[in-house]
Every structure is written in C-alpha cells, then in structure tokens.
C-alpha cells in the first residue's frame, strides 16, 4: 500500500472541506472497498478521511411518509430496520443477500452505492483498463468476462455494476442526498449511476469531496409487496450473475403497478423500463412476463463467456414476476 495519512472527522463540514481541498484524498467509511483497492494499488490516495463518526447513520421517517437511510448506516443495521423490512422488503432482502455478515457489519449504504466494479482487469494494475486508466483499452472485451454486463455496455467498458441494494433503490426511484463544497443536492438515483459510454472512469455525477449524506426512499405502498431475487453460483458471499428487484400489485388479474430493475447484468443498476411498459396493465400471466423480459433484453449484447446471462436474466425476470404474482395470490 502506498503511504497514506489518516484522519478522523467529527462533522460534515470538516469532512467535505478536508477532502475537497485535497485532490489526492478520499472518504473512508467501512473501508471494505476503499482499503481493498488501496492494497492492490488501484486506488492510491495520499490521505484518508474517516467519516465513520459523522452523525449520518440513522434510518429516519421523512415528512411525506418516506424513509431516509443515513449515508453511513451499516448494511446490516438497515437490513434489520423494521420500517425497511415492512415497507420496502426488497431493500432489506438485497442487503442481506449481499457480501457476508462480517462485511455487512462494516459496510455503509453510501459506500455500497460508491463501490467500484469487480472486473478482474480493473483490479489488476498491469492489465489495460479504460475505467482505471483511461485510454489503456478494455481487457475484458475479449477476456475472462463471465461476470460482465450485457446491458448498457460500450466498446470502452463492459463491467457490471456490483451493488445489490442499488438495484432495489433504482426500482423504487430513491433519491440520493449529497452535500458538497457547492452545497446540498438531491440526485434521482437513476441519474446517480452513469453509463460507461466513452468515459467509463466517470461513474457518478459527484464532485470531488461531495458526500452522500443519505438515501431517500419515497412513500410507495406497492413497495410493501416487493422482493429481490439473486442468482449466483454459490449460495452466499458472491455477487449476482443476475438479479431482479420487483414491486408489483395486481388487481382483477391485471398488473396495477409494477417496478422492476435488474442487477448483475448491466453496467449500472438497471431500471427495466421496457419491461415495465409491457407489464403495465397487462394480465399477470407467464406470457406477459416472458414478453416483458424479452423486450427488456432485446438490446442486450453478449461478449463471449457472458452470453448465457441474456437467457439467465430473462428467466430470472420471469421467475421473480411469477413468484411475486403467486404471492399476490392472483396468478
């Protein structure tokens, strides 16, 4: 690890001030991504500003009936929060299906949104990688890319966004609250994650030193009937090969409300709008689910080893919708 200085800050202003004043500094929350990447020289800040003591670790009710997850709330705490479990079960499920208990006890939800991709070439400083070192090419395009994305890719980068909970948050239209040198901002979560395009090094619209203070979950009755389905090789402690966050209500055999997002297959947490359009008002049948999944995956692009993900994602969507519909007792 490159030599690094470390300080702990107690208030938001100092945190933002310290990091924004020094381009070679970084926030340190749970450290499960940050320290990991420093140990392999992918990130080499000179200064770490530990924000663990900031008073941003609560889950609070919002005036209009929503919920605010503090940016520094631990994954394990949020997953157990009764209001989250009851009103947004897919958020709790996505958190619990991520990482391992030890990691979830350390990791924060803001850190989770900010985590970097798991592409092995990104992590191998001797390999070409446009995201890590712009202009060095994408080794994954013709490489070991079984885990890579089929949606939202570009010829510059095909790395999958790794977060689970972000998939649920995207389905819910959560809003990311930030505070930076230029003040506070509310960023709709879908805008918070950028497609790689020709600039895969830019993953978020944040400026250097801008802090994620919280994540707002809007009041959304349909979210109470939601779930998160995650498919992977081993039963625990692995990123998704494909995942689906779904919230759905059915009335008279027809889908009254639908929110759907995909994980494990796209370069950002993927709101499945094409599928939602097919499903909105459609009968809650396997045929409709299949049509929806196919519509969503129509633009998918395979890259060698990951070709199976298109079919896997399709089937996982159908499975999640089917189970949701069965639970609703209407299919």
């Amino acid at each position: 690890m490159r030599p690094v200085s470390y300080s702990r800050v107690a208030d938001v202003g100092t945190a933002i001030g310290t990091v924004s004043a020094d381009p070679e500094s970084a926030f340190l929350a749970g450290g499960t991504t940050q320290v990991d990447l420093m140990r392999i020289y992918v990130e080499q800040p000179h200064r770490l500003v530990d924000i663990s003591d900031l008073p941003l670790n609560q889950v609070e009710e919002l005036p209009g009936g929503g919920l605010r997850l503090g940016g520094l709330a631990r994954m394990s705490d949020v997953a157990q929060e009764p209001a989250v479990v009851r009103r947004y079960p897919m958020v709790a499920e996505a958190l619990l299906l991520g990482a391992s208990p030890q990691l979830r006890n350390m990791a924060t939800v803001a850190g989770n949104l900010m985590q970097r991709v798991r592409c092995s070439y990104f992590r191998d400083v001797a390999a070409g990688c446009n995201k890590r070192t712009p202009g060095t090419g994408c080794s994954a395009l013709d490489g070991v890319n079984r885990g890579h994305a089929v949606l939202g890719t570009s010829d510059c980068c095909i790395a999958t966004h790794p977060s689970d909970v972000a998939v649920a948050l995207v389905a819910l239209d959560a809003v990311v609250q930030t505070e930076g040198p230029a003040g506070r901002r509310s960023i709709p979560i879908d805008d918070f994650f950028l497609l790689p395009g020709q600039t895969p090094e830019q993953e978020h619209p944040l400026t250097h030193g801008e802090l994620v203070t919280g994540i707002d979950l809007p009041p959304l009755p349909v979210a109470a009937t939601s779930r998160y389905v995650k498919i992977r090789d081993r039963e625990s402690y692995e990123f998704a090969l494909a995942s689906v966050a779904v919230a759905m209500s059915v009335a008279g055999g027809r889908i009254a409300e639908i929110r759907l997002a995909l994980g494990g297959v796209a370069t950002k947490p993927w709101r499945a709008r094409a599928a939602e359009r097919v499903l909105d008002g459609a009968p809650a049948t396997i045929e409709a689910f299949t049509r929806a999944a196919e519509a969503e995956l129509a633009p998918a692009v395979p890259h060698g080893m990951n070709a199976f993900k298109i079919e896997l994602a399709r089937r996982t969507m159908v499975r999640a919708l089917e189970e949701m519909a069965q639970r609703e007792g209407t299919a």
């Binding site: 798991r118 092995s120 070439y121 001797a126 090789d233 081993r234 039963e235 402690y237 692995e238």
Partner: peptide
C-alpha cells in the same frame, strides 16, 4: 465451483482472489 481462469493474452490467472475463485461456503 472451483476454477482458476487463465487469460491467455496476459498469461496470468484472471481470478486470483478468494472473491473470484469460489470455494464452497457454509451455506453450500
């Protein structure tokens, strides 16, 4: 689960970590 994957262009293993080389966990 277990497979170490060689990248023949680099001549190096592409998943040389315990996060990427999968061994069974208790849940399996």
């Amino acid at each position: 689960l277990e497979a170490t994957r060689m990248d023949p262009r680099l001549g190096r293993w592409a998943n040389a970590s315990l996060g990427d080389y999968l061994v069974p966990v208790n849940a399996d």
